[in-house]
């Protein structure tokens, strides 16, 4: 019963702050609500016995990525979004229409899934699924990363290297421009 109420609180906070990410007028508030969403999703991971995923969610998402977002928002000094859009204001209402259609579609899919028990799709996995959540062991994840997913793993490291080099190059040119502007002024 306690678990259920904690689960409900996490679900509510995640949903509510996800809505506020979209509807908050200032990007800084949006970023803070996004942190709240990520932390409550990490709480859901803990309730599902997925401690590794929860730790990564907190450290990488709520820690690293969101700090980057806050840095950039403060660096650009974005205020409240003022003034109407140039000419595409009607597009937002189309966004609402498409979002509603998409929501209806996914609700239909999930309703189909929920009316059928989860274990019914895979009878062999039914006993473990019906019981408590199995704890996925960390060394099993590590073994998968080093055997089945080793190519994807190496590609990920290359991707991170490219991202680092790209970010450095983009930032460096800007620095050179700033120096030259100061030289021009002085």
């Amino acid at each position: 019963m306690l678990i259920q109420s904690i689960y409900g609180i996490f679900c509510f906070v995640a949903l509510f702050s996800a809505l506020l990410v979209v509807f908050s007028p200032h990007p800084v508030y949006g970023a803070l609500y996004l942190v709240t969403t990520m932390l409550s999703i990490a709480g859901l991971f803990v309730l599902m016995n997925a401690q590794l995923a929860a730790a990564f969610q907190v450290i990488v998402y709520a820690g690293a990525i969101m700090v980057l977002f806050m840095f950039v928002i403060m660096l650009l000094n974005l205020g409240r979004q003022d003034g109407p859009a140039v000419r595409t204001r009607g597009v937002r209402w189309w966004g609402l229409v498409f979002g509603g259609v998409f929501l209806a579609q996914v609700v239909a899919m999930v309703a189909q899934l929920v009316t059928r028990p989860v274990g019914a799709a895979a009878p062999s996995a039914a006993p473990s699924a019906a019981a408590a959540f199995a704890s996925v062991r960390i060394h099993e994840v590590a073994r998968l990363l080093m055997t089945d997913y080793v190519y994807a793993f190496e590609m990920t490291s290359v991707l991170l290297l490219i991202a680092i080099v790209g970010a450095v190059v983009l930032a460096r040119r800007q620095l050179v421009q700033g120096v030259s502007e100061e030289d021009l002024r002085s």
Partner: peptide, 26 residues
């Protein structure tokens, strides 16, 4: 991953989180 006792879901989660980090940086 948790409901089926499969570690693969958690492995894919790690990939998604890495790609999200790279995407955010660039």
């Amino acid at each position: 991953a948790q409901s089926l006792g499969q570690a693969r879901g958690v492995a894919v989660f790690l990939f998604v989180i890495t790609v999200a980090a790279a995407e955010a940086a660039v």
